[in-house]
């Protein structure tokens, strides 16, 4: 009985993990070095930044918003990191704090524009994204800079020699979100996403919940930018756009509804892993690298089309309109 309950509530999340497990199985079987720690480390390093962004995007989407500036926030954080995250341990710690604070402030600005300015989320975050991109270009007009090699190695290799640090980073993102989700703030984010009017009528602070969702989204975007810095040891202002679109794709593949209120961070991480594993898979399967965008597009299209299965259960024609 219990397991059928899980399938009912978490079906989409489990489905995303199922797709990922199949892809991963194929990936490991075609990889010349098979299932070794080194392979896992390289693979997880490619996944972590997108997974962090997908977590941030999920939180915003849960509140029935959307953050089209998540890529630019990541780029800005990455560029700031390339100036500050180096030197002595205390300087590095200071830099990391500033980078994360930048993400939070950017998210806060998004939230304020949406809540106080009463702009629609799409246009507000689109415009804010242009501003963040501009700031990233001011901070670092051309790619470059310097990021602590010691910290980067620690974050992109294995922890204690047994598990890739990037896997711990992704687990850490989940561990960070779930206490917040249980906290009144997290609950109100989801309540606002499923019905703003009902949340308002129940005495929840709708404005605060929305602003918190965008701020959290910004924090995870900054963490993603930081991780990219650990991979490349530099800052690049132009990385944002594809990450914005991929973060939305990961959220959708992971089964979170864009209509808000329902979905899971864990599913979105599976979505990010699916997208990234496809890239690696194509490389080792011997397909033309040129086929990669087509393959990714097809997976997104199929994942999205699953949303249409809802129509099969509809009895009353008016339910089509939700």
């Amino acid at each position: 009985m219990r397991s059928s309950g899980i399938f009912k509530t978490q079906g989409r999340t489990l489905f995303a993990w199922g797709v990922f497990a199949i892809l991963m199985g194929v990936f490991l079987s075609v990889h010349p070095r098979g299932a070794s720690l080194g392979v896992f480390t390289t693979w997880s390093n490619q996944c972590a930044a997108l997974a962090l962004l997908a977590v941030g995007q999920t939180i915003v989407v849960l509140s029935k918003g959307i953050d089209l500036s998540i890529g630019p926030i990541m780029a800005l954080a990455n560029c700031i990191a390339s100036h500050l995250v180096n030197g002595s341990p205390s300087e590095i710690a200071f830099g990391v704090v500033i980078v994360i604070a930048t993400g939070a402030i950017c998210g806060l600005i998004n939230g304020l524009v949406v809540v106080v300015g009463k702009l629609q989320a799409i246009i507000a975050t689109l415009a804010a994204g242009a501003i963040f991109t501009g700031l990233a270009l001011l901070v670092r007009p051309i790619p470059g800079g310097d990021i602590s090699v010691g910290l980067s190695d620690a974050m992109t290799m294995e922890a204690f020699g047994v598990v890739p640090s990037a896997v711990l980073v992704m687990l850490g993102a989940v561990a960070l979100w779930y206490p917040i989700r249980r906290h009144p703030i997290g609950r109100s984010i989801i309540a606002v996403g499923s019905s703003e009017a009902a949340a308002e009528a129940s005495g929840l602070n709708v404005a605060r919940a929305k602003i918190a969702a965008y701020a959290l989204g910004g924090v995870f975007a900054a963490l993603g930018g930081l991780f990219i810095g650990f991979q490349t040891l530099s800052g690049d202002p132009s990385i944002g756009l594809t990450y914005t679109l991929n973060s939305i794709a990961a959220v959708v593949i992971g089964g979170t509804m864009l209509t808000g209120g329902a979905g899971s961070v864990v599913g979105s991480i599976a979505g990010a892993l699916v997208l990234r594993t496809i890239g690696s898979l194509i490389f080792f399967i011997g397909l033309q690298p040129l086929a990669q965008p087509l393959f990714e597009g097809t997976v997104l299209l199929i994942a999205v089309s699953f949303g249409a299965t809802r129509l099969l259960k509809i009895k009353n024609r008016m339910e089509v309109f939700q």
Binding site: I66, I122, L245, I248, A249, V252, L258, T259, G297, L300, L301, V304, S305, G307, A308, R310, L311, V320, Q322
Partner: peptide, 11 residues
């Protein structure tokens, strides 16, 4: 298919 346009046209 009733898929949100933002996602469908992205795909």
């Amino acid at each position: 298919m009733r898929i949100p346009s933002m996602i469908w046209t992205l795909a």
